[in-house]
């Protein structure tokens, strides 16, 4: 009894230490990672909180005051329908972040569950799931997402799901691969011998071990989702107007690239900065959580 308690405590302590160490490596990894984390936090905070403090309306139009230059009233000027570009950037950031977070989370949830099922049960279930994964991975992601978007329509929800579905297979493959690898490991074999139930092994050993890779993949996919959304908007299968997203702001302002380049450049820069931030934070997480993954993700 006493021994077990002690063991648990040691384990807890070790975990805590490990976590602290990860955090230290993550934030100690130079100014870039810190900066990018700050940017991400800033984007999220601004898009969530600013509308509460400021009186921003992304859709109200001032038809007389179209394509106005930046001013005290309109910080980024107005667009081709006299809408406040700053408000649209903030609200657009909300939608873009939401689409990418929801799509990423959806993909991660579905992918992890399917991957676990495949990796754990094996047999025909596993084969079916893995075959489906291979099939979807053989169709270029962009093309697949485009078709799904065409099937499901142009609402925020359907686009989110379309982007999400496109990302599911990468998770399945990763989780499945990790599990297959871990299954061979000594401690899992030992646990099985000790007689722990499959489910217990799953949650106690397999998932925690796969966690670092998953979190990194997740972060990088968030950036990818934003990229996909903007490309779909450019190709004409994006979210319905007047909802602002950074992607459709760029593509709508495309025709004004000569007249008012800032309309495309501001959201364009937001997209690029956000994706860079996601990528670099993803790299930072990878290095701190599991340096062995370097070069594999």
């Amino acid at each position: 009894m006493e021994y077990e308690l002690n063991y648990n405590e040691i384990q807890k302590e070790a975990k805590k230490k490990n976590r602290q160490q990860s955090l230290r490596i993550f934030f100690g990894r130079g100014v870039t990672v810190k900066l990018c984390s700050a940017i991400l936090v800033l984007f999220v905070v601004l898009s969530l909180l600013l509308p509460l403090v400021m009186n921003l309306d992304p859709n109200s139009q001032d038809l007389v005051n179209r394509l106005a230059a930046p001013s005290a009233e309109h910080w980024f000027g107005t667009d081709y329908l006299g809408r406040d570009v700053f408000a649209r950037i903030i609200y657009g950031g909300r939608v873009s972040l939401m689409v990418s977070l929801l799509a990423g989370t959806f993909a991660a949830a579905v992918g992890i569950v399917l991957g676990l099922i495949a990796g754990f049960f094996g047999g025909i279930v596993s084969r079916t799931i893995m075959a489906a994964t291979d099939v979807i991975l053989s169709i270029p992601n962009m093309v697949f997402t485009m078709i799904i978007a065409a099937i499901m329509g142009r609402s925020v929800v359907s686009l989110t799901i379309a982007i999400g579905i496109g990302m599911v297979p990468t998770y399945i493959r990763m989780v499945n691969g990790q599990i297959l690898q871990l299954k061979e490991n000594d401690y899992v074999v030992a646990s099985t011998l000790v007689g722990q139930s499959s489910l217990k092994i799953l949650f106690k050993h397999l998932l925690p071990n796969a966690f670092p890779s998953l979190i990194v993949l997740y972060t990088i996919n968030l950036g990818n989702a934003i990229m996909t959304e903007s490309s779909l908007s450019y190709l004409g299968v994006g979210i319905n107007p007047p909802t602002a997203t950074w992607g459709n702001m760029v593509s709508d302002a495309y025709a004004y690239l000569y007249l008012a380049p800032r309309l495309a450049i501001i959201p364009g820069i937001c997209i690029i900065v956000l994706i860079i931030a996601f990528n670099i934070v993803g790299d930072g997480l990878r290095d701190s959580l599991d340096p062995r993954l370097r070069g594999k993700l």
Binding site: N59, S60, Q61, L63, Y80, L81, G236, P241, P242, A255
Partner: peptide, 15 residues
Amino acid sequence: EDSSALINSATIIQQ
């Protein structure tokens, strides 16, 4: 339909 004049008109009407 998907043409800029129509979409802009519809967006204004909506507002």
